[in-house]
């Protein structure tokens, strides 16, 4: 029923996954939000999580850097591995985990600080820069990687909240990049943006895809098709199907996947 990567004939040349879920269940109180998910996420590719609203894809995403910890009634069972370590064992430092697994949210959420301080926030709290010049360097390269440098280089001291929505979202991506993560989680990063800003973010994701494992939740199937190499379809808390994006969209194995893609459920 559920196609886990170990059962399917994916590119076998790939090394061990960057992150992996093994039998993950999530409960909000009595509500069984995520049911027994197995999923491998690889370092150099973009994975899309698609599915109708409330299917658990965002919940699953938030498990990957333990953002669900902030919700008191949320309980997670099963294993989530980052390389070889289970991130839900007590020995794991959540702070370290989140430095390695960054996150970009649905609504751009720059801090009400200057653009410079927004980027420098992460490096400062993790002590990544010994000197001011190092910090300048990190800020510059992060903004360059996020494709925002040309637009803001003359006004780094203006407030991050004064930027346009698309710029704010790229600022948030730059902020996540600045702590040098290995994985970047994106929770519908374009849903609050206009088409042009969306196109910019998408091309940015494309550029970043070689350097970071990117896992993106999206409501737009076109977006998933455009930017991701692998796609996982979630429905009612289950992962119905996982595979190469092209396969999911052209020849889905499951009826439910086909129904969703053709717009019959959702």
């Amino acid at each position: 029923m559920i196609n886990t990567p170990t059962e399917t004939n994916l590119d076998t040349v790939q090394a061990s996954p960057k992150m992996a879920a093994r039998g993950v269940n999530v409960y909000y109180g009595d509500n069984h939000a995520i049911k027994d998910i197995d999923l491998n996420l690889y370092a150099d590719e973009v994975t899309s999580l698609i599915g109708p609203s409330g299917c658990g894809k965002s919940t699953f995403l938030r498990c990957l850097n333990r953002m669900n910890d902030t919700i008191p009634i949320c309980r997670v069972s099963g294993q989530i591995l980052l390389e070889d370590d289970d991130i839900y064992t007590s020995g794991i430092d959540v702070v370290q985990l989140r430095a390695r697994v960054g996150m970009v949210f649905q609504k751009p959420n720059p801090f009400p600080k200057s653009i410079y301080d927004n980027i420098a926030y992460g490096p400062r709290i993790h002590g990544l820069a010994a000197h001011r010049t190092d910090l300048d360097e990190i800020v510059t390269t992060s903004l360059e990687k996020a494709g925002l440098w040309q637009e803001v280089k003359d006004r780094l001291d203006t407030s991050g909240t004064a930027l346009s929505g698309g710029q704010q979202q790229r600022l948030c991506i730059a902020r996540a990049i600045a702590v040098n993560p290995e994985v970047i989680l994106m929770d519908e990063p374009c849903s609050a943006l206009d088409p042009i800003a969306t196109a910019k973010i998408e091309s940015l994701i494309d550029e970043l895809s070689g350097r970071y494992a990117i896992i993106i939740v999206t409501h737009s199937m076109q977006q998933a098709a455009r930017i991701s190499r692998k796609t996982a379809f979630f429905h009612l808390g289950e992962m119905v199907e996982y595979g190469d994006t092209t396969e999911i969209f052209t020849s889905p194995k499951e009826d439910r996947t086909r129904d969703y893609i053709t717009g019959r459920i959702g």
């Binding site: 985990l97 960054g102 949210f105 801090f111 009400p112 926030y121 709290i125 702590v179």
Partner: peptide, 11 residues
């Protein structure tokens, strides 16, 4: 969302 953003950076 600001709090989440900060937590997500490992603060």
């Amino acid at each position: 969302s600001l709090k989440d953003g900060s937590f997500a950076l490992g603060a």
